[in-house]
């Protein structure tokens, strides 16, 4: 049977992933909108920087974040907050780590939106807030939600970044992937197998939800014209 430390680490992972997804939704949606519809000098470079976490070794990313958040880092000096080896630090790292996933999905959702709909909505004298609520969100929410879910699943499974930024303090920063690693290190394979099965089912569930949402998004697109 799975022991309480597993459930503690899983709860922590879920909390971090949920908080990070929420932050991604709030920051990533406006950012993706901006990247989808505006052009400005240096846009390609900026997009490359946002995508960097996709290709960078997670430990490298984690190392930089640790330096940034650490006792001598700029974040501490700027805000007085010490986020290394803390829940906030894990969330911060997760947001950066999963940003490319969320951003790409959000941008796709916005780019698939028929620009004519937005133009016509403007000529109808409707304020922008109402256009967002009544046109943009109803047509893009499947894409936005599936992007957020992907980022959630991605955060749930991250290892290198959170190990660098959070370490493995049981009950505080030990996320479920790290707990699993510790089990294997201690040669507790039966428990490791059970923990892995739970994570497998969780990930599968999220991906099924993402696929269903994508199908829903396509259904709207086919009726636009």
């Amino acid at each position: 049977m799975l022991e309480p430390p597993f459930w503690t680490s899983l709860t922590l992972s879920l909390e971090v992933a949920l908080t990070a997804s929420f932050v991604l939704l709030l920051t990533g949606v406006p950012l993706a909108w901006w990247l989808a519809f505006r052009s400005f000098p240096g846009k390609a470079l900026l997009e490359a920087i946002f995508l960097l976490p996709l290709v960078l070794p997670p430990t490298v990313l984690g190392f930089y974040i640790l330096l940034f958040l650490g006792p001598e880092g700029p974040w501490r000096k700027l805000t007085g907050l010490s986020w290394a080896f803390s829940f906030e630090g894990l969330v911060f790292a997760s947001v950066l780590f999963s940003l490319p996933f969320a951003l790409t999905a959000y941008r796709e959702a916005f780019l698939s939106l028929d620009r004519n709909l937005l133009e016509v909505a403007r000529t109808l004298g409707v304020p922008r807030g109402k256009i967002w609520l009544k046109v943009v969100l109803p047509l893009t929410w499947p894409g936005l939600l599936s992007g957020t879910l992907l980022a959630f699943a991605h955060t749930l499974g991250e290892f290198g970044v959170v190990l660098m930024v959070g370490g493995s303090i049981p009950g505080k920063t030990q996320m479920v992937s790290i707990y699993l690693y510790d089990l294997v290190q201690a040669l507790r394979f039966r428990e490791a197998a059970e923990a892995s099965a739970v994570l497998l089912l969780l990930s599968l569930g999220v991906l099924v939800a993402v696929r269903l949402l994508e199908a829903r998004g396509r259904a709207w697109k086919s009726t636009t014209r």
Binding site: D114, N116, L117, E119, V120, A121, T123, K134, V135, P138, L139, W220, T223, T224, R225
Partner: peptide, 14 residues
């Protein structure tokens, strides 16, 4: 005060 009908009409599909 104009009413604009684009080529694809851009009716809101939802």
């Amino acid at each position: 005060p104009v009413g604009y009908l684009p080529q694809d009409l851009a009716l809101f599909p939802h």
